[in-house]
């Protein structure tokens, strides 16, 4: 494999790791949301990432959480490259860029503006929301599948793992719910029910309807953000410059490049 091959595999690794960074508020990958405007492995192996949110006003705490996620993803690259990440067109772009580069915490970057509360509680809020949204999709999918509430709530991990959904929201969220469950409850036993509240409490058969109503509220809010962010981002990105008219890594991430058009060489050097 020549240098082109090396750079392609590095591009792929970069793409794969960035796709694991979620917008905390939406629980969707930043790459799918189109927030990664450019991600490039340069000739010397160093990495550059341009990041742009749907509006100038997007919450700085969310911007920070995502950029911090990107920083951690880049730290995981196998060739340990030097990297730079830029946040563009944001009201706190300057502060965030400088701070992220210096590896500062959110509190250090924003000092007194951030109050005394740690970001960790915000992260936890979003973890709970993501858990609920993923769980709702799977629960609704199982109900549509024709299972009774009793059957659903009696499922353990082995039972869940044999379920096959038609392509759709339930199919998409199933592995994500599974991952969130295992991450949240590392001490759970294989025979424990897979559907519990975010606190780990069991759900009585008779209460599933009411519980789903609560989860629906969480999803409605998250979907509002998601739909709005997608719409606003689409509008804003229409003005983004095209790099020499060539597809960029972002085009590959967003699957905007037809297979035939994929060059054999890395799209960016």
């Amino acid at each position: 494999m020549g240098t082109a091959g090396v750079s392609i595999s590095r591009e792929e690794e970069l793409r794969r790791l960035l796709a694991q960074v979620n917008d905390p508020e939406l629980d969707e990958p930043v790459t799918e949301m189109g927030f990664v405007e450019r991600a490039e492995v340069r000739g010397d192996g160093s990495v550059e990432v341009d990041f742009r949110l749907p509006t100038y006003w997007c919450s700085p705490n969310f911007a920070y959480l995502m950029l911090d996620g990107i920083r951690k993803a880049l730290d995981g690259l196998s060739w340990s490259p030097a990297y730079r990440v830029w946040l563009h067109d944001h009201m706190f772009a300057k502060e965030v860029n400088r701070g992220i580069e210096a590896g500062k915490t959110f509190g250090q970057i924003f000092g007194e503006l951030s109050g005394d509360q740690d970001l960790e509680s915000l992260r936890e809020t979003f973890r709970v929301k993501a858990f609920k949204r993923r769980q709702e999709a799977v629960l609704c999918g199982l109900r549509r599948h024709g299972l009774t509430d009793r059957e659903i709530l009696g499922m353990d991990l082995a039972a869940l793992d044999v379920v096959r959904f038609e392509p759709g929201e339930a199919a998409k969220q199933m592995p994500r719910y599974r991952a969130a469950l295992l991450e949240r409850f590392p001490g759970r036993r294989p025979e424990d029910p897979v559907f519990v509240t975010s606190e780990g409490a069991g759900i009585p058969n008779s209460a599933l309807g009411a519980y789903l109503a609560e989860l629906r509220g969480v999803r409605i809010n998250m979907e509002f953000n998601g739909a709005l962010c997608r719409g606003l981002k689409h509008t804003r990105y229409k003005e983004a410059d095209v790099v020499d008219g060539e597809p960029t890594l972002v085009d590959f991430i967003l699957d905007r490049v037809p297979d035939k058009a994929r060059p054999t060489q890395a799209p960016l050097t």
């Binding site: 919450s59 705490n61 969310f62 959110f106 509190g107 503006l113 109050g115 509360q117 915000l122 809020t125």
Partner: peptide
């Protein structure tokens, strides 16, 4: 709408 500070709160 979004409140800007404290920055670390749910917006």
């Amino acid at each position: 709408g979004p409140t800007i500070i404290p920055l670390n709160k749910d917006a």
